[in-house]
Amino acid sequence: MSKKRELIYYIPNIESNKKDLQYVHDVTSLTLGIGSGILTLESYKGFLLYIFGYTAVNLLFYFVCCNKKAASFFRKPFHEIFLEDILSDMPGFVMMWCLTYALVR
């Protein structure tokens, strides 16, 4: 018999937390896109800004919103906060980057 306790989750709160995290990620990726367009960054520099900025915002989210107890708000905290959305938010970032770059240049 395994002594491991099985946790029961409340699904609506999981959805709500995911929605909040998604909102923060969306705003972050679009704003970073605007920023790198204004600074007229090119090639890998823009992606570096994206990765560093995104990770910095995730750390802010982890320390401020989760209060360092991310396990009580997300099922897979590290994966969900830091890794899962970084690629799926990249198209939005590139879109805003191109748009502001074209407007500024």
């Binding site: 409340y10 709160n13 919103c65 989760c66 009580s72 997300f74």
Partner: peptide, 10 residues
Amino acid sequence: YLKEIEMKKA
């Protein structure tokens, strides 16, 4: 900011 996901706390 966020909501607890464990059933007994939620």
